[in-house]
């Protein structure tokens, strides 16, 4: 597995599942933070602005936790 990881890094070919998973953590963290500060659920634009991300990126990052390709992730980790 270490071999595969090195190959992925050297080649610059990071799997989507992996980088989106990192974004997913960021999005989740910020969402909770804003929820506490605002006392309500943030809007998509508020969250996007707070993260310096687009709405599109947030939608994609939110979905990754539950999609089937996370199976690959556990294989590569």
């Amino acid at each position: 597995i270490g071999e595969i990881q090195r190959f992925i890094r050297d080649d610059g070919t990071v799997k989507v599942s992996r980088s989106l998973k990192e974004l997913n953590h960021k999005v989740r963290g910020k969402k909770e933070e804003l929820m506490k500060n605002l006392g309500r659920s943030p809007t998509v634009n508020e969250l996007a602005e707070a993260l310096g991300m687009t709405r599109e990126e947030i939608v994609q990052a939110e979905e990754v936790g539950r999609s089937p390709q996370s199976i690959y992730e556990t294989v590569y980790e």
Partner: peptide, 18 residues
Amino acid sequence: RVAVAAFVSQMNPTMEEL
């Protein structure tokens, strides 16, 4: 863009390909 990305993601592409 998002629909195609979500659809193609089931093939487990690299970030670059996506």
